[in-house]
């Protein structure tokens, strides 16, 4: 077993973690209905953020329309419950199944091409689903689709499920990052040429990254359908994608706690919008986009990428002496 030295930094981390845990437990018991709702929304975006983080932060396929996977998950659940009359488990699986199919197409494009082409393919596929969801009769068009009331859960149950999903996604992210798959994903992002010459099959890993990420987003989407009990094609809206990217960009792309830190923006946004008159509602998106641009231009590494949050570097200088000795031999 490795012995971990107990530092001051570790105790600060522990204190923050305990305070956060206490607050999260207190919220459903003592919090107002509105605050619980905001809490659920924050967990949704943390989970989505982890999904985006896996695809774009870890494996470097830049997903600009992540709402695609989320929306398909939501429609998988709502269509199954409302139109086919089956249970949520089937809805969840159908959502995941549909997502895997779409992710396969996206992954095939992404494995052949990268950068601009991948982005455009994603936008194209996203537009197909957005338009169809808003026009077909089975999805209820722009009026949307409502779920049967028998599946309605109480706020507290929803809160606990949302928290569980967010924590699960975070753990999943870490498990993948520290496994063989994660190493390959990061290798492909950092230097695909070298990775290929070291024997990793770029196509396979890229498709796998899209598949995993889509499944993660699908679960969140299915939960959203149950949470809202009614939704329309707006689940595919670009604002959703924008918020997902925001949460990660502000928190720190590729960093496991990035979405947790970045989700503070979702809280801010909810309170600001609550306080603003409705005619200013569109300005909140303007603020979002401005923050996004400023972050991307000035601090691409995000808050968690700051020096104070980095694990302590091994002092290369100290080992340099070894080299010096070696050279004099």
């Amino acid at each position: 077993m490795r012995s971990v030295k107990w530092t001051k930094r570790n105790s600060i981390y522990l204190a923050v973690l305990l305070a956060l845990a206490a607050f999260l437990i207190y919220l459903p018991i003592g919090g107002s209905r509105r605050n619980i709702n905001i809490g659920i929304l924050v967990f949704i975006y943390i989970a989505l953020g982890q999904s985006w983080n896996l695809l774009s932060g870890m494996s470097g396929l830049f997903s600009i329309a992540h709402a695609l996977f989320y929306g398909i998950g939501a429609y998988g659940m709502s269509l199954m419950l409302a139109r086919a009359g089956s249970n949520p488990l089937v809805g969840l699986l159908v959502g995941i199944g549909a997502n895997l199919l779409v992710a396969l197409i996206v992954g095939m494009v992404g494995s052949k091409l990268s950068g601009l082409y991948f982005t455009m393919a994603l936008i194209g596929i996203h537009s197909i689903f957005y338009t169809l969801a808003g026009q077909l009769t089975i999805t209820g068009g722009w009026l949307g689709i409502s779920l049967p009331r028998e599946w309605q859960l109480t706020r507290k149950e929803l809160y606990i499920i949302a928290l569980a999903i967010a924590v699960f996604m975070t753990v999943l992210f870490q498990v993948i990052r520290s496994s063989r798959i994660g190493t390959m994903f990061v290798a492909l992002k950092e230097n695909p040429q070298l990775a290929a010459s070291l024997g990793s099959d770029i196509r396979k890993w890229r498709i796998l990254a899209v598949l995993i990420s889509a499944t993660m987003a699908s679960v969140v989407g299915s939960f959203y359908a149950i949470y809202m009990m009614a939704h329309n094609a707006e689940v595919f809206n670009g604002t959703v994608s924008l918020r997902i990217m925001m949460v990660c960009m502000v928190g720190g792309v590729g960093h496991i706690f990035g979405p947790w830190v970045g989700s503070a923006l979702i809280i801010m946004d909810e309170y600001i919008r609550g306080a603003m008159p409705t005619e200013f509602a569109s300005l909140s998106v303007v603020i979002y986009a401005l923050v996004l641009i400023v972050m991307a231009l000035l601090r691409p590494q995000g808050i968690m990428g700051s020096k104070i949050f980095q694990p302590k570097e091994v002092d290369v200088r100290a080992i340099e002496n070894l080299d010096a000795r070696e050279k004099t031999e």
Binding site: F62, I64, M249, V286, L297, P300
Partner: peptide, 15 residues
């Protein structure tokens, strides 16, 4: 970064 920033700009202009 270009894609991200211009996407942001697009949303700003539309809104």
């Amino acid at each position: 970064t270009q894609i991200l920033c211009t996407m942001g700009l697009q949303l700003i202009i539309i809104n």
